[in-house]
């Protein structure tokens, strides 16, 4: 806009400048506001509190030392039935010394699983099978399948080791223990994933690392 085109009135110049700037600023503000719904539409609609799904799992076919996996909220969930040997191994002092977070200090589990076996009942372990390093799915090392296998998990991607309670080994690249989902036992063989009777306020979005 060249000066020669400005109307000659003396105060008109100032007024138009204010008008011009105001209009342009307001127009830009409108354009920015228009971008909001577009960005909004990209939000994950599943990430709202309503979408905490409940999944009931029948455990009657799970024998001691076995594990199974189910899908919950698109995550693999490992359920293992522990043998007395596995439970003993979880408490062995020289094993505990090799762990990064043996006492589950980092919030990776509901309150009712913040214990030495990281589960509601010692006999059953329930873990979200997503490696806390970069998200691969670790595989179960069935006790006795190899001489070292004690029922822990091994992540093939960068070699992180987790014990049967999902606690990460100190030597591993993964920073945290495997997450534990909120669960409730409806009966001795019926497990509900998605709600924790012992920690009702718990939500997966509280987890530190998943």
């Amino acid at each position: 806009m060249t000066q020669s085109e400005t109307p000659p009135s003396s105060d008109g110049t100032r007024r138009r400048d204010l008008l011009a700037t105001g209009t342009v600023v307001l127009g830009c503000a409108g354009a920015c506001a228009l971008a909001v719904p577009f960005v909004e539409s990209l939000k994950n609609p599943v990430a709202n509190p309503l979408s905490d799904r409940l999944l009931d799992v029948d455990l009657s076919s799970l024998t001691p030392g076995q594990d199974m996996s189910v899908r919950w909220r698109d995550w693999p969930v490992f359920i293992q039935r522990r043998t007395p040997q596995m439970l003993a191994a979880l408490q062995a002092p020289d094993h505990l010394a090799t762990l990064r977070d043996a006492d589950s200090k980092v919030l990776q589990q509901p309150k009712d699983a913040t214990n030495w076996h990281r589960s509601v009942r010692p006999e059953y372990g329930v873990l979200i099978g997503v490696c806390t390093h970069l998200g691969c799915v670790p595989s179960f090392e069935k006790p006795g399948s190899t001489p070292e296998a004690k029922g822990g998990y091994f992540c093939p991607c960068h070699g992180s080791h987790f014990d049967a309670a999902g606690r990460v080994a100190r030597r591993a690249p993964a920073p945290c223990n495997l997450p534990v989902p909120p669960v409730t036992f409806l009966s001795d063989t019926k497990l509900r994933i998605g709600h924790s009777a012992g920690d009702p306020g718990f939500s997966m979005s509280d987890i530190q690392q998943i």
């Binding site: 909001v36 719904p37 539409s41 609609p45």
Partner: peptide
């Protein structure tokens, strides 16, 4: 119905 602001877009 379900996508946030989807109705607008």
């Amino acid at each position: 119905r379900q996508i946030p602001s989807g109705w607008f877009i």
